[in-house]
């Protein structure tokens, strides 16, 4: 067992998982109240939005893309939905329009990348600025949009409980499961792996690469919209300034940390869960240890750095096999 864990089979995912387990054990042992059920729920809840967005990002990253618009969609679609409802639109109509906005951004991303062949990094970088600007200009004039009273019927999305478990955790579980099933069991899911592994080969083999790329971004947009609704209903407002925060990096981090390679074709939803759990355990443990919020970020950064360094030492990249342009 030990040999299997320390041998060549020690992937980044396993390293991160081991660190997560080690921290979990250490915290359970040394920290009073860490293992209490309500604390575990708090832990999961604090990272559930991050995890959900991570699943959306993972679908794109596995297909050798990246979606920098995910936070923009997350914030602006939910904000517009609130804004519409504030202006008197019915909740179902507002929900639908909000989703259409999210989908439009996602599909545009896909078209830019698949048909205009703009590299994903720049297509979504440009779209993130464009979509945010458009939404601020034409749809949501305010920085902070509050939840309207009429939205009481959808508060349960982010603020409800089922058998004492916050709905946001359940949504994370649901999205993770759906993402797993999509990638593992559907034809489109398998094609995403094929495209991520070798785009040209997938294309020559007859995979409908362009529609699949568009689909990926549509999926991540959908997931982002859901995450936006969860957050917005949980804090009863949506602050669109989050678009300019470092949240996008946190999402990429949980995805890549768990072992989904940015070069595509590697990893799955399991990796996202592992990455998310590590972040969650870290944050929660440090909070119980009464470490200040700012210092927590420093420690978190250091541990992430250590995690990727260990991975690199255990699985060194070979100059001979390194892929050109794989940054």
């Amino acid at each position: 067992m030990l040999r299997r864990l320390t041998g060549a089979a020690l992937t980044q995912e396993k390293i991160v998982l081991l660190i997560a387990i080690a921290l979990f054990c250490a915290f359970s042992f040394f920290l009073k109240g860490f293992l209490r059920p309500d604390n575990i729920l708090t832990l999961l809840r604090s990272v559930s939005t991050l995890g959900i967005l991570g699943v959306g990002m993972a679908v794109v990253v596995i297909g050798r893309g990246i979606d920098l618009t995910i936070v923009t969609i997350y914030a602006m679609s939910a904000a517009w939905m609130f804004h519409l409802a504030n202006g008197g639109a019915s909740i179902p109509l507002a929900l639908t329009l909000g989703y259409l906005f999210a989908l439009a951004v996602g599909v545009t991303n896909g078209v830019l990348i698949a048909y205009l062949e703009i590299p994903a990094l720049f297509a979504t970088l440009g779209m993130a600025a464009f979509a945010y600007g458009f939404a601020r200009y034409a749809l949501v004039p305010l920085y902070v949009v509050y939840m309207p009273a009429s939205a009481a019927s959808i508060v349960w999305i982010g603020g409800g409980f089922v058998f004492g478990v916050p709905t946001s955790i359940l949504f994370f579980a649901l999205v993770a499961f759906l993402g797993f099933a999509f990638l593992r069991f559907t034809k489109q899911g398998r094609f995403i792996y094929a495209i991520g592994d070798n785009f040209a080969a997938a294309r020559i083999s007859g995979a409908p690469v362009r529609p699949i790329v568009v689909l990926q971004y549509a999926v991540s947009a959908t997931v982002a919209y859901l995450a936006g609704l969860i957050t917005a209903t949980a804090v009863a407002s949506m602050n669109t300034a989050v678009v300019n925060s470092s949240m996008i990096y946190d999402i990429i981090l949980v995805v890549v940390l768990g072992g989904v390679g940015l070069s595509g074709g590697r990893g799955g939803i399991r990796n996202v869960i592992v990455g998310t759990l590590l972040i969650g355990i870290l944050l929660n443990g440090m909070t119980i240890m009464n470490i200040q919020y700012t210092l927590q970020n420093v420690i978190r950064g250091l541990i992430l750095l250590i995690a990727i360094v260990i991975d690199s030492v255990v699985n060194p990249r070979d100059e001979q096999t390194a892929q050109q342009g794989d940054i």
Binding site: S246, Y249, D250, I252, L253, V256, L262, T294, L295, N297, V298, R300, G301, L302, L304, L305, I308, V309, S312, D326, I327
Partner: peptide, 16 residues
């Protein structure tokens, strides 16, 4: 290490 991921972590670390 991979440049994108590493400098991303360093970005958050230095920012903190």
């Amino acid at each position: 290490l991979r440049a994108f991921l590493t400098t991303l972590v360093v970005l958050t670390l230095i920012r903190a």
